[in-house]
Nucleic acid binder design. Sequence first.
DNA 1: TTTCACTAAAGTGTCGACACTTTAAGAAAT
DNA 2: ATTTCTTAAAGTGTCGACACTTTAGTGAAA
Lengths: 237, 237
Amino acid sequence: MSTVQDSDMQNQSTATPLDAANIPLTERLFDALQRAIVEGEIPQGSKISEPELARQHGVSRGSLREAMARLEVRKLVERKPNLGARVVTLSYEQLIEIFQLREALEGMAARLAAQNMTEIEIEELQKLLDQHGEQIAEQHGQAYFQKQGDLDFHYRIVQGSKNKQLIELLCNDLYHLLRMYRYQFGMRSKRSQQAYEEHQYLINAISARDPEMAELLMRQHIRSSRRNVEAVFLEKL
Amino acid sequence: MSTVQDSDMQNQSTATPLDAANIPLTERLFDALQRAIVEGEIPQGSKISEPELARQHGVSRGSLREAMARLEVRKLVERKPNLGARVVTLSYEQLIEIFQLREALEGMAARLAAQNMTEIEIEELQKLLDQHGEQIAEQHGQAYFQKQGDLDFHYRIVQGSKNKQLIELLCNDLYHLLRMYRYQFGMRSKRSQQAYEEHQYLINAISARDPEMAELLMRQHIRSSRRNVEAVFLEKL
DNA sequence: TTTCACTAAAGTGTCGACACTTTAAGAAAT
DNA sequence: ATTTCTTAAAGTGTCGACACTTTAGTGAAA
Protein backbone atom coordinates (compact mmCIF):
# COMPACT_ATOMS: atom_id res chain seq x y z
CA MET A 1 0.00 0.00 0.00
CA SER A 2 1.21 3.44 -1.00
CA THR A 3 4.72 2.37 -1.69
CA VAL A 4 7.09 3.85 -4.16
CA GLN A 5 5.24 5.13 -7.17
CA ASP A 6 4.04 8.20 -5.35
CA SER A 7 7.23 10.08 -5.88
CA ASP A 8 5.96 11.90 -8.94
CA MET A 9 2.58 13.09 -7.77
CA GLN A 10 3.72 15.49 -5.10
CA ASN A 11 6.97 16.83 -6.35
CA GLN A 12 6.23 19.71 -8.61
CA SER A 13 3.43 18.46 -10.82
CA THR A 14 1.12 21.27 -9.66
CA ALA A 15 -1.54 18.66 -10.30
CA THR A 16 -2.61 18.91 -6.68
CA PRO A 17 -4.82 21.97 -6.72
CA LEU A 18 -7.15 21.34 -3.82
CA ASP A 19 -5.60 18.56 -1.86
CA ALA A 20 -3.78 20.73 0.62
CA ALA A 21 -5.80 23.93 0.61
CA ASN A 22 -2.70 25.84 1.58
CA ILE A 23 -2.30 24.18 4.93
CA PRO A 24 1.40 23.58 5.24
CA LEU A 25 2.61 20.04 4.89
CA THR A 26 4.25 20.13 8.28
CA GLU A 27 1.00 21.00 9.93
CA ARG A 28 -1.00 18.24 8.29
CA LEU A 29 1.80 15.88 9.16
CA PHE A 30 1.75 17.02 12.74
CA ASP A 31 -1.97 16.38 12.98
CA ALA A 32 -1.66 12.99 11.33
CA LEU A 33 1.13 11.89 13.61
CA GLN A 34 -0.63 13.18 16.67
CA ARG A 35 -3.70 11.19 15.75
CA ALA A 36 -1.67 8.09 15.02
CA ILE A 37 0.06 8.30 18.37
CA VAL A 38 -3.05 9.09 20.35
CA GLU A 39 -4.97 6.22 18.81
CA GLY A 40 -2.11 3.83 19.30
CA GLU A 41 -1.49 3.25 15.63
CA ILE A 42 2.12 3.96 16.48
CA PRO A 43 2.46 2.04 19.70
CA GLN A 44 3.59 3.73 22.88
CA GLY A 45 7.26 3.48 23.65
CA SER A 46 8.15 2.51 20.11
CA LYS A 47 11.17 3.99 18.44
CA ILE A 48 10.62 6.27 15.50
CA SER A 49 12.92 6.15 12.51
CA GLU A 50 12.88 9.47 10.73
CA PRO A 51 13.77 8.18 7.26
CA GLU A 52 11.20 5.42 7.42
CA LEU A 53 8.38 7.52 8.78
CA ALA A 54 9.14 10.25 6.28
CA ARG A 55 9.00 7.75 3.44
CA GLN A 56 5.74 6.31 4.70
CA HIS A 57 4.14 9.72 4.61
CA GLY A 58 5.83 10.74 1.40
CA VAL A 59 7.55 13.78 2.82
CA SER A 60 11.11 14.85 3.35
CA ARG A 61 12.89 14.39 6.61
CA GLY A 62 13.04 18.12 7.18
CA SER A 63 9.31 18.49 7.24
CA LEU A 64 8.93 15.50 9.45
CA ARG A 65 11.52 16.81 11.82
CA GLU A 66 9.61 20.03 12.24
CA ALA A 67 6.49 18.09 13.12
CA MET A 68 8.47 15.98 15.55
CA ALA A 69 9.79 19.05 17.31
CA ARG A 70 6.24 20.11 17.93
CA LEU A 71 5.17 16.68 19.10
CA GLU A 72 8.01 16.79 21.56
CA VAL A 73 6.79 20.03 23.11
CA ARG A 74 3.35 18.47 23.34
CA LYS A 75 4.89 15.60 25.27
CA LEU A 76 3.79 12.93 22.85
CA VAL A 77 7.31 11.93 21.88
CA GLU A 78 10.63 12.07 23.69
CA ARG A 79 13.87 12.76 21.91
CA LYS A 80 17.41 12.19 22.98
CA PRO A 81 20.29 13.69 21.03
CA ASN A 82 21.75 11.29 18.50
CA LEU A 83 19.61 8.47 19.79
CA GLY A 84 16.36 9.33 18.15
CA ALA A 85 12.77 9.71 19.20
CA ARG A 86 10.35 7.39 20.92
CA VAL A 87 6.65 7.66 21.52
CA VAL A 88 6.03 8.39 25.18
CA THR A 89 5.19 5.59 27.53
CA LEU A 90 2.05 5.99 29.55
CA SER A 91 1.98 5.19 33.21
CA TYR A 92 -0.49 5.01 36.01
CA GLU A 93 1.39 7.68 37.93
CA GLN A 94 1.27 10.08 35.04
CA LEU A 95 -2.43 9.51 34.64
CA ILE A 96 -3.02 10.43 38.26
CA GLU A 97 -0.94 13.54 37.81
CA ILE A 98 -3.05 14.52 34.85
CA PHE A 99 -6.19 14.13 36.90
CA GLN A 100 -4.74 16.50 39.46
CA LEU A 101 -4.07 19.01 36.73
CA ARG A 102 -7.54 18.64 35.39
CA GLU A 103 -9.04 19.12 38.81
CA ALA A 104 -7.29 22.46 39.14
CA LEU A 105 -7.82 23.66 35.60
CA GLU A 106 -11.32 22.47 34.93
CA GLY A 107 -12.33 23.63 38.37
CA MET A 108 -11.24 27.10 37.41
CA ALA A 109 -12.95 26.68 34.04
CA ALA A 110 -16.23 25.87 35.74
CA ARG A 111 -15.85 28.88 38.01
CA LEU A 112 -15.28 31.17 35.05
CA ALA A 113 -18.02 29.50 33.04
CA ALA A 114 -20.50 30.33 35.77
CA GLN A 115 -19.53 33.96 35.25
CA ASN A 116 -19.06 34.11 31.53
CA MET A 117 -21.25 31.62 29.72
CA THR A 118 -24.17 33.14 27.86
CA GLU A 119 -27.69 32.03 28.64
CA ILE A 120 -27.88 30.45 25.23
CA GLU A 121 -24.73 28.44 25.79
CA ILE A 122 -26.15 27.21 29.07
CA GLU A 123 -29.37 26.17 27.39
CA GLU A 124 -27.50 24.21 24.78
CA LEU A 125 -25.40 22.57 27.40
CA GLN A 126 -28.59 21.45 29.11
CA LYS A 127 -29.89 20.06 25.84
CA LEU A 128 -26.69 18.12 25.36
CA LEU A 129 -27.02 16.65 28.80
CA ASP A 130 -30.65 15.71 28.17
CA GLN A 131 -29.54 13.72 25.17
CA HIS A 132 -27.04 11.89 27.31
CA GLY A 133 -29.79 11.15 29.78
CA GLU A 134 -31.90 9.54 27.08
CA GLN A 135 -29.03 7.46 25.83
CA ILE A 136 -28.34 6.18 29.29
CA ALA A 137 -31.99 5.28 29.79
CA GLU A 138 -32.32 3.43 26.48
CA GLN A 139 -29.25 1.36 25.92
CA HIS A 140 -27.26 0.72 28.98
CA GLY A 141 -24.57 3.16 28.17
CA GLN A 142 -22.69 2.28 24.96
CA ALA A 143 -19.30 3.02 26.41
CA TYR A 144 -18.11 4.88 23.37
CA PHE A 145 -20.94 7.37 23.19
CA GLN A 146 -20.71 7.87 26.90
CA LYS A 147 -17.08 8.76 26.69
CA GLN A 148 -17.57 11.03 23.74
CA GLY A 149 -20.48 12.69 25.47
CA ASP A 150 -18.50 13.24 28.62
CA LEU A 151 -15.72 14.81 26.62
CA ASP A 152 -18.17 17.09 24.81
CA PHE A 153 -19.66 18.24 28.07
CA HIS A 154 -16.35 19.14 29.62
CA TYR A 155 -15.19 20.68 26.39
CA ARG A 156 -18.11 23.09 26.34
CA ILE A 157 -17.59 24.24 29.87
CA VAL A 158 -13.97 24.95 29.13
CA GLN A 159 -15.02 26.96 26.12
CA GLY A 160 -17.53 28.74 28.31
CA SER A 161 -14.79 30.02 30.57
CA LYS A 162 -13.82 32.40 27.76
CA ASN A 163 -10.25 32.27 28.99
CA LYS A 164 -8.18 31.71 25.86
CA GLN A 165 -5.12 30.48 27.70
CA LEU A 166 -7.16 27.96 29.60
CA ILE A 167 -8.95 26.79 26.49
CA GLU A 168 -5.71 26.35 24.60
CA LEU A 169 -4.09 24.51 27.42
CA LEU A 170 -6.89 22.09 28.11
CA CYS A 171 -8.18 21.54 24.60
CA ASN A 172 -4.92 21.51 22.71
CA ASP A 173 -2.41 20.08 25.14
CA LEU A 174 -3.95 17.99 27.86
CA TYR A 175 -6.89 16.82 25.83
CA HIS A 176 -4.74 14.77 23.48
CA LEU A 177 -2.80 13.11 26.23
CA LEU A 178 -6.03 12.24 27.95
CA ARG A 179 -7.50 10.81 24.78
CA MET A 180 -4.37 8.74 24.42
CA TYR A 181 -5.00 7.18 27.80
CA ARG A 182 -8.60 6.50 26.89
CA TYR A 183 -7.53 4.73 23.73
CA GLN A 184 -4.66 2.75 25.16
CA PHE A 185 -6.16 1.48 28.37
CA GLY A 186 -9.81 0.76 27.80
CA MET A 187 -10.97 2.94 30.72
CA ARG A 188 -14.68 2.45 30.45
CA SER A 189 -16.51 4.38 33.08
CA LYS A 190 -19.32 2.19 34.51
CA ARG A 191 -20.46 5.19 36.43
CA SER A 192 -22.31 6.93 33.62
CA GLN A 193 -25.43 7.29 35.74
CA GLN A 194 -23.57 9.03 38.51
CA ALA A 195 -21.60 11.17 36.09
CA TYR A 196 -24.85 12.22 34.49
CA GLU A 197 -26.21 13.41 37.81
CA GLU A 198 -23.02 15.26 38.66
CA HIS A 199 -23.17 16.99 35.32
CA GLN A 200 -26.69 18.09 36.08
CA TYR A 201 -25.71 19.60 39.41
CA LEU A 202 -22.94 21.42 37.65
CA ILE A 203 -25.29 22.95 35.13
CA ASN A 204 -27.54 24.06 37.96
CA ALA A 205 -24.68 25.87 39.62
CA ILE A 206 -23.62 27.54 36.40
CA SER A 207 -27.19 28.46 35.64
CA ALA A 208 -27.49 30.01 39.09
CA ARG A 209 -24.30 31.96 38.38
CA ASP A 210 -22.63 30.51 41.42
CA PRO A 211 -18.90 30.33 40.61
CA GLU A 212 -17.85 28.99 43.97
CA MET A 213 -20.30 26.13 43.78
CA ALA A 214 -19.49 25.41 40.13
CA GLU A 215 -15.82 25.04 40.89
CA LEU A 216 -16.49 22.88 43.90
CA LEU A 217 -18.77 20.55 41.96
CA MET A 218 -16.41 20.26 39.05
CA ARG A 219 -13.56 19.38 41.31
CA GLN A 220 -15.59 16.76 43.08
CA HIS A 221 -16.71 15.38 39.77
CA ILE A 222 -13.17 14.99 38.53
CA ARG A 223 -12.02 13.52 41.81
CA SER A 224 -14.77 10.91 41.55
CA SER A 225 -13.68 10.15 38.05
CA ARG A 226 -10.14 9.73 39.24
CA ARG A 227 -11.15 7.42 42.04
CA ASN A 228 -13.00 5.32 39.50
CA VAL A 229 -9.89 5.05 37.39
CA GLU A 230 -7.84 4.13 40.41
CA ALA A 231 -10.30 1.39 41.29
CA VAL A 232 -10.28 0.00 37.75
CA PHE A 233 -6.52 -0.09 37.82
CA LEU A 234 -6.24 -1.76 41.15
CA GLU A 235 -8.56 -4.54 40.17
CA LYS A 236 -6.53 -5.05 37.03
CA LEU A 237 -3.46 -6.03 39.01
CA MET B 1 25.53 46.99 15.91
CA SER B 2 26.52 43.36 15.47
CA THR B 3 26.43 43.58 11.72
CA VAL B 4 28.26 41.53 9.18
CA GLN B 5 31.71 40.58 10.36
CA ASP B 6 30.47 37.70 12.46
CA SER B 7 30.05 35.36 9.56
CA ASP B 8 33.45 33.72 9.88
CA MET B 9 33.64 32.80 13.53
CA GLN B 10 30.81 30.35 13.73
CA ASN B 11 30.47 28.81 10.33
CA GLN B 12 32.46 25.64 10.07
CA SER B 13 35.83 26.53 11.52
CA THR B 14 35.67 23.49 13.86
CA ALA B 15 37.47 25.88 16.18
CA THR B 16 34.59 25.52 18.59
CA PRO B 17 35.52 22.36 20.43
CA LEU B 18 33.68 22.74 23.71
CA ASP B 19 31.13 25.34 22.94
CA ALA B 20 28.35 22.93 22.14
CA ALA B 21 28.99 19.95 24.39
CA ASN B 22 26.76 17.78 22.23
CA ILE B 23 23.64 19.77 22.85
CA PRO B 24 21.96 19.98 19.47
CA LEU B 25 22.19 23.27 17.68
CA THR B 26 18.45 23.54 17.41
CA GLU B 27 18.07 23.29 21.14
CA ARG B 28 20.62 25.96 21.93
CA LEU B 29 19.01 28.12 19.32
CA PHE B 30 15.61 27.57 20.85
CA ASP B 31 16.90 28.62 24.25
CA ALA B 32 18.64 31.66 22.84
CA LEU B 33 15.60 32.81 20.93
CA GLN B 34 13.34 32.19 23.86
CA ARG B 35 15.56 34.32 26.04
CA ALA B 36 15.78 37.04 23.43
CA ILE B 37 12.02 37.18 23.08
CA VAL B 38 11.32 37.04 26.78
CA GLU B 39 13.77 39.82 27.54
CA GLY B 40 12.47 41.96 24.72
CA GLU B 41 15.66 41.87 22.70
CA ILE B 42 13.44 40.93 19.82
CA PRO B 43 10.54 43.30 20.38
CA GLN B 44 7.01 42.01 20.77
CA GLY B 45 4.92 41.99 17.65
CA SER B 46 7.94 42.30 15.40
CA LYS B 47 8.15 40.26 12.26
CA ILE B 48 10.82 37.61 12.04
CA SER B 49 12.71 37.01 8.83
CA GLU B 50 14.01 33.49 8.74
CA PRO B 51 16.97 34.14 6.45
CA GLU B 52 18.11 37.15 8.42
CA LEU B 53 17.72 35.59 11.83
CA ALA B 54 19.44 32.44 10.65
CA ARG B 55 22.34 34.48 9.36
CA GLN B 56 22.60 36.43 12.59
CA HIS B 57 22.94 33.22 14.56
CA GLY B 58 25.12 31.57 11.99
CA VAL B 59 22.86 28.60 11.42
CA SER B 60 20.89 27.23 8.50
CA ARG B 61 17.26 28.03 7.99
CA GLY B 62 16.30 24.43 8.62
CA SER B 63 17.64 24.46 12.14
CA LEU B 64 16.06 27.79 12.81
CA ARG B 65 12.76 26.60 11.53
CA GLU B 66 12.76 23.70 13.93
CA ALA B 67 13.35 26.06 16.81
CA MET B 68 10.58 28.33 15.53
CA ALA B 69 8.14 25.44 15.44
CA ARG B 70 8.82 24.87 19.11
CA LEU B 71 8.51 28.52 19.97
CA GLU B 72 5.15 28.50 18.27
CA VAL B 73 3.85 25.70 20.46
CA ARG B 74 5.12 27.63 23.47
CA LYS B 75 3.05 30.59 22.32
CA LEU B 76 5.98 32.94 22.02
CA VAL B 77 5.64 33.41 18.28
CA GLU B 78 2.70 33.20 15.92
CA ARG B 79 3.01 31.90 12.42
CA LYS B 80 0.73 32.25 9.46
CA PRO B 81 1.27 30.16 6.36
CA ASN B 82 3.31 31.97 3.72
CA LEU B 83 3.21 35.18 5.70
CA GLY B 84 5.88 34.41 8.23
CA ALA B 85 6.24 34.59 11.95
CA ARG B 86 5.85 37.39 14.44
CA VAL B 87 6.68 37.61 18.09
CA VAL B 88 3.49 37.53 20.12
CA THR B 89 1.94 40.74 21.30
CA LEU B 90 1.25 41.00 24.99
CA SER B 91 -1.98 42.38 26.26
CA TYR B 92 -3.57 43.26 29.53
CA GLU B 93 -6.36 40.75 28.94
CA GLN B 94 -3.92 37.93 28.37
CA LEU B 95 -2.05 38.82 31.51
CA ILE B 96 -5.22 38.56 33.54
CA GLU B 97 -5.95 35.21 31.95
CA ILE B 98 -2.53 34.00 32.94
CA PHE B 99 -3.14 35.04 36.51
CA GLN B 100 -6.30 32.97 36.51
CA LEU B 101 -4.33 30.00 35.28
CA ARG B 102 -1.71 30.52 37.91
CA GLU B 103 -4.29 30.74 40.62
CA ALA B 104 -5.63 27.33 39.67
CA LEU B 105 -2.31 25.65 39.03
CA GLU B 106 -0.21 27.07 41.80
CA GLY B 107 -3.08 26.61 44.18
CA MET B 108 -2.98 22.93 43.37
CA ALA B 109 0.79 22.99 43.61
CA ALA B 110 0.61 24.40 47.12
CA ARG B 111 -1.93 21.76 48.10
CA LEU B 112 0.31 18.98 46.84
CA ALA B 113 3.40 20.59 48.32
CA ALA B 114 1.79 20.46 51.74
CA GLN B 115 1.49 16.73 51.23
CA ASN B 116 4.69 15.94 49.45
CA MET B 117 7.48 18.33 50.36
CA THR B 118 10.15 16.86 52.59
CA GLU B 119 10.93 18.44 55.91
CA ILE B 120 14.29 19.48 54.56
CA GLU B 121 12.77 21.21 51.58
CA ILE B 122 10.45 23.08 53.88
CA GLU B 123 13.36 24.18 56.05
CA GLU B 124 15.22 25.48 53.05
CA LEU B 125 12.17 27.29 51.84
CA GLN B 126 11.98 28.98 55.22
CA LYS B 127 15.64 29.98 54.97
CA LEU B 128 15.02 31.49 51.56
CA LEU B 129 12.15 33.50 52.91
CA ASP B 130 14.24 34.70 55.84
CA GLN B 131 16.78 36.07 53.39
CA HIS B 132 14.02 37.94 51.63
CA GLY B 133 12.92 39.35 54.94
CA GLU B 134 16.39 40.72 55.61
CA GLN B 135 16.65 42.25 52.17
CA ILE B 136 13.35 43.99 52.63
CA ALA B 137 14.43 45.33 56.00
CA GLU B 138 17.78 46.65 54.77
CA GLN B 139 17.33 48.29 51.45
CA HIS B 140 13.83 49.18 50.66
CA GLY B 141 13.29 46.37 48.32
CA GLN B 142 15.54 46.55 45.24
CA ALA B 143 12.80 45.72 42.80
CA TYR B 144 14.90 43.24 40.88
CA PHE B 145 15.89 41.06 43.79
CA GLN B 146 12.35 41.15 45.04
CA LYS B 147 11.01 39.86 41.79
CA GLN B 148 13.66 37.21 41.50
CA GLY B 149 13.03 36.17 45.06
CA ASP B 150 9.33 35.92 44.52
CA LEU B 151 9.89 33.76 41.48
CA ASP B 152 12.27 31.51 43.41
CA PHE B 153 9.77 31.03 46.16
CA HIS B 154 6.95 30.05 43.87
CA TYR B 155 9.29 27.90 41.87
CA ARG B 156 10.23 25.84 44.89
CA ILE B 157 6.68 25.23 45.91
CA VAL B 158 5.86 24.03 42.45
CA GLN B 159 8.82 21.68 42.61
CA GLY B 160 7.61 20.55 46.00
CA SER B 161 4.33 19.36 44.54
CA LYS B 162 6.28 16.47 42.98
CA ASN B 163 3.76 16.43 40.16
CA LYS B 164 5.88 16.25 37.02
CA GLN B 165 3.12 17.43 34.72
CA LEU B 166 2.45 20.41 36.88
CA ILE B 167 6.12 21.26 37.18
CA GLU B 168 6.62 21.04 33.44
CA LEU B 169 3.61 23.14 32.72
CA LEU B 170 4.32 25.92 35.17
CA CYS B 171 8.09 26.04 34.95
CA ASN B 172 8.55 25.43 31.26
CA ASP B 173 5.51 26.96 29.65
CA LEU B 174 3.82 29.60 31.75
CA TYR B 175 6.95 30.73 33.51
CA HIS B 176 8.50 32.16 30.36
CA LEU B 177 5.41 34.01 29.33
CA LEU B 178 5.17 35.49 32.78
CA ARG B 179 8.80 36.54 32.74
CA MET B 180 8.14 38.18 29.42
CA TYR B 181 5.45 40.30 30.97
CA ARG B 182 7.72 41.23 33.83
CA TYR B 183 10.41 42.35 31.42
CA GLN B 184 8.22 44.19 28.99
CA PHE B 185 5.97 46.11 31.34
CA GLY B 186 8.00 47.13 34.34
CA MET B 187 5.56 45.57 36.83
CA ARG B 188 7.29 46.44 40.05
CA SER B 189 5.40 45.15 43.00
CA LYS B 190 5.41 47.80 45.76
CA ARG B 191 3.82 45.26 47.97
CA SER B 192 6.92 43.30 48.86
CA GLN B 193 6.19 43.60 52.56
CA GLN B 194 2.74 42.14 52.17
CA ALA B 195 3.96 39.45 49.81
CA TYR B 196 6.58 38.50 52.35
CA GLU B 197 3.95 38.01 55.02
CA GLU B 198 1.73 36.00 52.73
CA HIS B 199 4.67 33.79 51.90
CA GLN B 200 5.24 33.19 55.57
CA TYR B 201 1.64 32.14 56.15
CA LEU B 202 1.98 29.79 53.24
CA ILE B 203 5.03 28.13 54.71
CA ASN B 204 3.22 27.72 57.99
CA ALA B 205 0.39 25.90 56.28
CA ILE B 206 2.74 23.65 54.38
CA SER B 207 4.72 23.00 57.50
CA ALA B 208 1.52 22.06 59.31
CA ARG B 209 0.72 19.69 56.43
CA ASP B 210 -2.57 21.41 55.81
CA PRO B 211 -3.26 21.07 52.07
CA GLU B 212 -6.60 22.81 52.16
CA MET B 213 -5.19 25.86 53.87
CA ALA B 214 -2.08 25.90 51.67
CA GLU B 215 -4.17 25.99 48.53
CA LEU B 216 -6.43 28.65 49.93
CA LEU B 217 -3.53 30.88 50.92
CA MET B 218 -1.74 30.46 47.63
CA ARG B 219 -4.84 31.37 45.71
CA GLN B 220 -5.40 34.44 47.83
CA HIS B 221 -1.78 35.39 47.40
CA ILE B 222 -1.99 35.20 43.63
CA ARG B 223 -5.28 37.04 43.57
CA SER B 224 -3.71 39.85 45.57
CA SER B 225 -0.84 39.94 43.17
CA ARG B 226 -3.28 40.16 40.30
CA ARG B 227 -5.20 42.98 41.91
CA ASN B 228 -1.95 44.83 42.34
CA VAL B 229 -1.20 44.44 38.65
CA GLU B 230 -4.66 45.60 37.76
CA ALA B 231 -4.22 48.69 39.90
CA VAL B 232 -0.85 49.50 38.37
CA PHE B 233 -2.37 49.20 34.94
CA LEU B 234 -5.36 51.34 35.65
CA GLU B 235 -3.25 54.18 36.99
CA LYS B 236 -1.12 53.96 33.89
CA LEU B 237 -4.04 54.96 31.67
C1' DT C 1 -0.42 63.47 -9.79
C1' DT C 2 -2.78 59.30 -8.80
C1' DT C 3 -3.76 54.60 -9.95
C1' DC C 4 -3.04 50.30 -11.77
C1' DA C 5 -0.33 46.69 -13.88
C1' DC C 6 3.89 44.42 -14.13
C1' DT C 7 8.30 42.99 -12.75
C1' DA C 8 11.94 42.18 -9.38
C1' DA C 9 13.27 41.27 -4.74
C1' DA C 10 12.57 38.95 -0.58
C1' DG C 11 10.54 35.30 1.97
C1' DT C 12 8.49 30.81 2.91
C1' DG C 13 7.74 25.68 1.98
C1' DT C 14 10.00 21.67 0.87
C1' DC C 15 13.52 18.77 -0.67
C1' DG C 16 17.97 16.12 -1.25
C1' DA C 17 22.79 15.70 0.21
C1' DC C 18 26.71 15.10 3.31
C1' DA C 19 29.21 14.55 7.75
C1' DC C 20 29.32 12.51 12.01
C1' DT C 21 27.32 9.14 15.56
C1' DT C 22 25.36 5.04 16.92
C1' DT C 23 24.06 0.31 16.11
C1' DA C 24 24.65 -4.05 13.95
C1' DA C 25 27.08 -7.69 11.82
C1' DG C 26 30.91 -10.35 10.82
C1' DA C 27 35.78 -11.73 11.29
C1' DA C 28 39.73 -12.67 14.01
C1' DA C 29 41.82 -14.23 18.09
C1' DT C 30 41.79 -16.65 22.39
C1' DA D 1 32.43 -21.45 21.21
C1' DT D 2 32.93 -16.87 23.29
C1' DT D 3 34.69 -12.46 23.30
C1' DT D 4 36.55 -8.55 21.13
C1' DC D 5 37.89 -5.79 17.27
C1' DT D 6 36.66 -4.11 12.78
C1' DT D 7 33.77 -2.47 9.48
C1' DA D 8 29.44 -1.61 7.21
C1' DA D 9 24.71 -0.16 7.64
C1' DA D 10 21.41 2.82 9.48
C1' DG D 11 20.23 7.00 11.73
C1' DT D 12 20.61 11.78 13.24
C1' DG D 13 22.31 16.76 12.81
C1' DT D 14 22.89 20.31 9.74
C1' DC D 15 23.23 22.55 5.48
C1' DG D 16 22.38 24.60 0.79
C1' DA D 17 19.24 24.73 -3.21
C1' DC D 18 14.98 25.47 -5.75
C1' DA D 19 9.98 26.34 -6.58
C1' DC D 20 6.19 28.98 -5.36
C1' DT D 21 4.08 33.01 -2.77
C1' DT D 22 4.01 37.47 -1.11
C1' DT D 23 5.73 42.16 -0.95
C1' DA D 24 7.73 46.17 -2.82
C1' DG D 25 9.16 49.09 -6.39
C1' DT D 26 8.80 51.09 -11.01
C1' DG D 27 6.81 52.73 -14.98
C1' DA D 28 2.72 53.46 -18.00
C1' DA D 29 -1.91 55.05 -18.47
C1' DA D 30 -5.58 58.13 -17.05
